[in-house]
């Protein structure tokens, strides 16, 4: 077994887990939802082993580095973070309905990593990437991104929850709102740490901790956005639907920072230098 086979299985693990959670929710199979937890946990273990193997394989080809250095690897780690965070939340909030809204993100990230046409080879690192700050930076950023993905899922959950219904399969609106807020502040803390570790890394590699490049700037925009949500909630009493929508828009910001900048803005910027 090599890492790519295990990663291939993880796609189906997360797809299966998502399907179970969604079906359990739709058809009120409350007892079946636990199998979603089992599948998610097993897949997470498998994926962790796969990441470990890939790390080891990189040493075998003489390019030893943590598997966190290109789009493919980062998507895999993104899905890993979502699954891990989700399990943590399921345990903490004692609620399996979140799985139907969180695990599809993990399944999508993993499937996209595999079928999105990214280079899946282990490549040696160019000198600038050879830094422990890289690991710290990627890990912190992606824990933050994972939290924002789950918050987006919770936002969707909130919007689908019919408030007039006393007995719903979904948690009470205030509970969803509270979980959403908690997930967002968790994400905000890690995004902050991600921006900071990125700045420290840039400073140790190039002597400037901030250079307003589009990726940096977009991470700051995302940060401003979530900071504004937190303030609106805390001091102006925004909540419920408004926050649910903002959680969704916030995740679009995250997605653009992570993904869009590479493909949409690089065009603009390479124009300038060509």
């Amino acid at each position: 077994m090599d890492s790519s086979q295990l990663l291939g299985i993880s796609i189906f693990g997360y797809l299966l887990a998502s399907a179970i959670y969604i079906a359990a929710l739709l058809f009120r199979w409350d007892k079946a939802a636990i199998s979603g937890t089992i599948v998610t946990s097993l897949t997470l273990i498998l994926q962790t082993v796969a990441l470990g193997l890939r790390w080891q394989e990189s040493y075998q080809i003489g390019a030893g580095h943590a598997p966190l250095t290109n789009m493919f690897e980062s998507l895999v780690f993104f899905s890993w973070s979502i699954a891990a965070l989700y399990l943590l939340m399921e345990w903490k909030f004692k609620n399996r309905t979140i799985g139907a809204f969180a695990m599809p993100f993990a399944a999508f990230a993993m499937a996209y990593a595999n079928y999105g046409g990214f280079n899946q080879q282990i490549n040696p690192l160019v000198p600038a990437l050879q830094s422990n700050w890289l690991i710290a930076h990627v890990v912190t950023c992606f824990i933050g991104y994972a939290a924002f993905a789950v918050a987006c899922g919770l936002g969707i959950m909130y919007l689908l929850r019919k408030p007039e219904k006393e007995k719903s399969r979904l948690p009470a609106p205030q509970t969803i709102d509270d979980m959403n807020h908690k997930t967002m502040i968790f994400g905000f803390l890690w995004l902050t740490a991600g921006i900071i570790t990125g700045a420290i890394w840039a400073n140790s590699a190039w002597g400037t901790y901030w250079s307003w490049d589009p990726k940096e700037t977009w991470s700051l925009i995302t940060w401003f956005f979530y900071a504004a949500i937190l303030h609106a909630r805390l001091t102006r009493g925004w909540q419920g639907k408004t926050i649910a929508w903002l959680a969704i828009v916030g995740f679009l910001c995250v997605a653009f920072t992570y993904y869009g900048v590479n493909y949409l803005l690089s065009g603009l910027h390479s124009y300038g230098s060509s």
Partner: peptide, 26 residues
């Protein structure tokens, strides 16, 4: 006021977007 804070954060975010759309330093 926090209203001002929200407004400034919004302006900072919006103008920063502009800066990523328009190439800088040409």
């Amino acid at each position: 006021s926090v209203k001002l804070a929200l407004f400034v954060l919004f302006l900072l975010a919006a103008s920063s977007i502009l800066g990523t759309l328009i190439p800088q330093g040409k």
